[in-house]
């Protein structure tokens, strides 16, 4: 029982982080239908940047965190402005390939600046463990869940009430109409990229505060795609709901299946889910099925 509760809490919190990263993907996909495959690398580089701010420059958290957010926004802006803008209206293959290229480039930059490749973030959350019933859970997981929920609420409010948020929803709905209304679509694109990188960066900090900074974060970014696929590519709600499902599947499966199959089955579950979803319901739980005309 205690075991189960522990798995559920860790699964939920990791799943929430997946949700955050997946939201970053959905944001960009909805506004500009670019599939951002560099998410994993963006997560990784923002974690390393946080590490530099906190451990190397030894800044206090309240200065470091805004700097990280600024950095992520800048990163998103640069990517959109210099790599994606020249490729507007290109076939999907080029758009996917260009994000792969960006990911490759970022990976090089990471090796260039932080070649030791494994490190731990300084403690962000209190160290004491919490007792929930019979289970013992380290506090980080609870904090992660809380922060994710706060970010979800902030994003929802932004999209509902802020002018830019409304413009972004409108662009997702109909690009031509939005342009005709005089909304600068290119600015919407770059804002969505800035937001996406920001959200991914927050997710990266949260997950690396639990597990440390390793190259595995790139894989975490890729695992977030299973959330996107399960929830539906163009659905915010889908991403938020599918994240915890994937997290739970990963943690419960990893917890209970490992004795029966080979070790490390945890890392593979999201990818298996991708294949299963593809075969059964390729447009996900909440995704809109595209009907094509010739």
């Amino acid at each position: 029982m205690a075991e189960l509760l522990q798995f559920v809490i860790t699964g939920l919190s990791v799943g929430m982080v997946y949700s955050l990263i997946a939201l970053g993907f959905v944001l960009v996909w909805k506004s500009s239908s670019v599939a951002n495959l560099a998410l994993g690398q963006i997560v990784l580089i923002s974690s390393w940047f946080t590490y530099s701010m906190l451990a190397q420059a030894e800044l206090p958290v309240y200065i470091a965190f805004p700097l990280v957010v600024l950095f992520a926004m800048f990163l998103g802006w640069v990517i959109e402005r210099f790599a994606l803008r020249p490729l507007i209206a290109q076939p999907i293959l080029s758009l996917i390939a260009v994000t792969l290229g960006i990911g490759y480039f970022i990976e090089g930059v990471i090796t260039f600046i932080w070649p030791w490749s494994v490190d731990a973030l300084p403690r962000l959350f209190p160290r004491e463990v919490i007792h929930i019933g019979p289970a013992v859970i380290s506090q980080e997981y609870v904090w992660v869940i809380v922060i994710c929920l706060v970010v979800f609420v902030l994003l929802t409010v932004f999209f509902r009430y802020h002018k830019m948020g409304i413009a972004m929803r409108a662009t997702a709905d109909d690009q031509m109409a939005v342009q005709a209304c005089g909304i600068p679509v290119t600015r919407v694109f770059s804002t969505s990229w800035m937001f996406a990188c920001c959200v991914a960066a927050i997710g990266g900090i949260l997950i690396s505060s639990i597990g440390g900074i390793t190259h595995g974060l790139v894989e975490t970014g890729l695992k977030a795609f299973s959330v996107v696929i399960l929830g539906g590519l163009d659905s915010f709600a889908g991403a938020i709901i599918a994240g915890p499902i994937i997290g739970l599947a990963e943690s419960l499966g990893g917890g209970y299946l490992t004795p029966y199959i080979w070790a490390g089955v945890k890392d593979i579950i999201p990818f298996v889910i991708i294949i299963i979803v593809m075969c059964i319901k390729p447009y996900g739980l909440f995704g809109e099925e595209r009907i094509e005309r010739i």
């Binding site: 260009v98 490759y104 970022i106 990976e107 260039f112 070649p115």
Partner: peptide
């Protein structure tokens, strides 16, 4: 510089080459 930094040059250039070719 810290040891091993130069191995990052290869992926950096490859990424750059892919992006530049696409554009």
């Amino acid at each position: 510089f810290p040891a091993g930094f130069a191995t990052g040059v290869t992926p950096m250039l490859f990424g750059l080459v892919i992006v530049l070719f696409l554009i």
